[in-house]
Design a protein around this nucleic acid. Structure first.
Lengths: 144, 144
DNA sequence: TCTTGATCCTCCAGCTACTAGAGGATGTAG
DNA sequence: CTACATCCTCTAGTAGCTGGAGGATCAAGA
């Protein structure tokens, strides 16, 4: 199975597959004489696993750990649980953060009389932090 | 007011201020003879505006527009409204997305018997996309 | 006056997780 | 035989910073 077929089978783009190989998230596959990569069903499974974990928002480092765990069936799953638990907390916090943000954006829009900038509520609120209810720190730099 | 004082006054880090200047989000300030930047109260206001907009998750490009609008009080605020409205929609979609994700992560954790990897629900669900209810595409690459 | 420590300067590299493109070799179908 | 698709490597770009190297300057205390 060439790389294009793997891409179609998993929904992961070809350059992304090569990228995963470069960062050793995927093992270097067998190469045929013409230097082309060839993949097996096992590779399809592994890449699908990775893609699914990405959809759930896990970082590549976490996924690296999860993939490694998958290959050790006798281990306790406490580490996997902990990764998922951490992610769950993150997602919960993000939802709270975004919900507050949403309320504030709504208030801004509602307060705006749709006239001139000079008395635009939107610009006012942005200019004066005291006028709003959003007092959280900048969100941590993270993925979705 | 030197750059360090501006940083303390606004809560924006010194390298970030220089970065904003480099991308022309902040105007190049007056430099004293020793080549050091000096800022005014107006700069404090402008940078606070930017910081607040960042906290609300606006992209720097959007902020650039908002800052420019602020300087034209006679203009209609429809453009500002539209930027906020777009952001509001984004935030709403993200909340929906993350809420689904949260439910799925919770189901994964609940289903796990906390035993061995071999029968870990967490790993199983990741391995088999069919076992979960999450059928959304990968989220678009975006900020918070 | 000297020294110490804080602050400032510029420039460059790195972070995440890709994505896109150049430039070229090979495979496949009509 | 000619297209066209697919493959290869390598490099650079995205957003929004962040941190460090290497060096200059300033303010305060001994």
């Amino acid at each position: 199975m060439p790389i294009g077929a793997l891409a179609r089978a998993t929904g992961v783009k070809v350059p992304t597959i090569r990228y995963y190989e470069a960062i050793a998230l995927l093992p270097a596959p067998f190469r045929s004489s013409n230097n082309r990569r060839h993949y097996s069903a096992r590779d399809v499974a592994r890449l699908s696993f990775i893609r699914h974990a990405r959809e759930l928002g896990f970082e590549l480092d976490a996924i690296r750990t999860l993939v490694a765990l998958q290959d050790r069936p006798e281990k306790s799953c406490s580490e996997a649980d902990s990764i998922v638990g951490t992610r769950l907390i993150e997602v919960g916090e993000k939802i709270t953060y975004l919900s507050n943000l949403k309320m504030e954006l709504e208030r801004m829009l509602q307060g705006c009389g749709h006239g001139r900038i000079a008395n635009c509520r939107v610009i006012e609120v942005l200019a004066d932090h005291g006028e709003c209810c959003h007092h959280q720190p900048l969100p941590p730099r993270k993925k979705s």
